[in-house]
């Protein structure tokens, strides 16, 4: 479930408020989005992917809150990891183009 909106990284673009398919966020009074309906989070990671500054963290547990903090995530380098792997962001190549996509498809039929 979505657990962290980094106050220090957020640029108040509210992209996450728009793209969340289950409407989990509200616009905050100070411009920083608020996790208003955490129970509705379906752990699809789309908000994280669309965040242009890697300010969001969706913890992998879809059934409950794990209680991670921004400091821990910074230390472990977990913020923005998914977006990097998908290849979104300036100067990155979309993973869709990756040569392994072709190789795996040929070998396994996926």
């Amino acid at each position: 479930m979505i657990e962290v909106v980094s106050q220090s990284r957020c640029v108040s673009c509210n992209q996450c408020v728009s793209v969340c398919p289950t409407n989990v966020f509200d616009k905050g009074e100070d411009g920083i989005p608020v996790i208003a309906r955490q129970d509705d989070c379906q752990t699809c990671f789309m908000c994280e992917l669309y965040c242009p500054v890697d300010a969001l963290y969706v913890s992998p547990d879809s059934e409950g809150v794990m209680g991670v903090t921004e400091e821990e995530l910074e230390q472990q380098g977990l913020l923005g990891g998914y977006r990097e792997k998908v290849g979104w962001g300036r100067g990155r190549v979309p993973v869709a183009k990756h040569d392994y996509m072709y190789q795996l498809s040929v070998r396994s039929g996926f």
Binding site: F45, Y82, K85, V95, H98, Y100, M101, Q103, F110
Partner: peptide, 12 residues
């Protein structure tokens, strides 16, 4: 190859 092709499989 598996790691790259389903990025979100490995995320959790």
């Amino acid at each position: 190859l598996l790691r790259v092709a389903q990025t979100n499989f490995f995320l959790p």
